[in-house]
Amino acid sequence: MIPAPFDYVRADSVDDAIARLREDPEGKLLAGGHSLLPAMKLRLARPSTLIDIGRLRDLAYIREDGDRVAIGALTRHHDVATSELLRQACPIVAHAASVVGDPQVRHVGTIGGSCAHGDPAGDLPSVLLALEAEFVARGPSGERTIPASGFFTSLFETALAPDEVLTEIRVPRTSGGWAYLKFNRRAIDWAIVGVAAVRANGGVRVGLTNMGLTPLRATGVEEAIASGADPAAAAARADEGTAPPADAFASDEYRRELAKVLVRRALEQVLA
């Protein structure tokens, strides 16, 4: 399979990428391309122009930023997974990056590309949601910060405007327990269901992968833990407010049950 024809341009800066996005409303940014190119082969995406930002090396970094860690949008999954800073300051992010795809995919795919793609089955989005991460976007009128709770808006949709570029993701330093449990059939598959759990402010925050049109917070579970429920009782509320898809891998009922099991296991790990 080969993508349909498109024009190819290489952006030499973020501002250049923004200008080119404004020139062609049907244009798309190309980072690692590991979500976009498969979609283009299947004609699920058919951009008229690919604006290659993959060479903007100044967007590939992981650095301390006060009480947070700032991750450049073009940082590859491999570099997130192997970052000493993240392993110490926010280990769930490094771990989640290490279970994305396979080594070859992690050598090319980027954290920003994965988030901007807005796939609810992606591993990083639910983790970033549970962490209450911040997304930094730059557009023609400057920079703005979008909270994770407002970033993922629908299936393959995010809060990014058509002429905005995601430049950075900021995650908090965490010191408590954490877990990211991904259930799939083959090592390389997307999560059938994934569960991210982190301790924060005495409570637990839980994110769900592939349980709806966007990554979701399991607010029922969080409330139950806050009011003293044990992991098993809290996990029984894991599918509240979800709308899991049904596909060749699993029915929606199966996903609801799986979410409860994985949430219980994640809570047991986090609260241990």
């Binding site: 190309l30 391309g33 491999h78 080594p103 070859q104 995919v105 050598h107 090319v108």
Partner: peptide, 16 residues
């Protein structure tokens, strides 16, 4: 290998 690291060449454009 791309710059010494394994990659899947069916999911990369030659221009990349």
């Amino acid at each position: 290998h791309l710059d010494g690291e394994s990659v899947k060449s069916c999911t990369l454009l030659a221009v990349q």
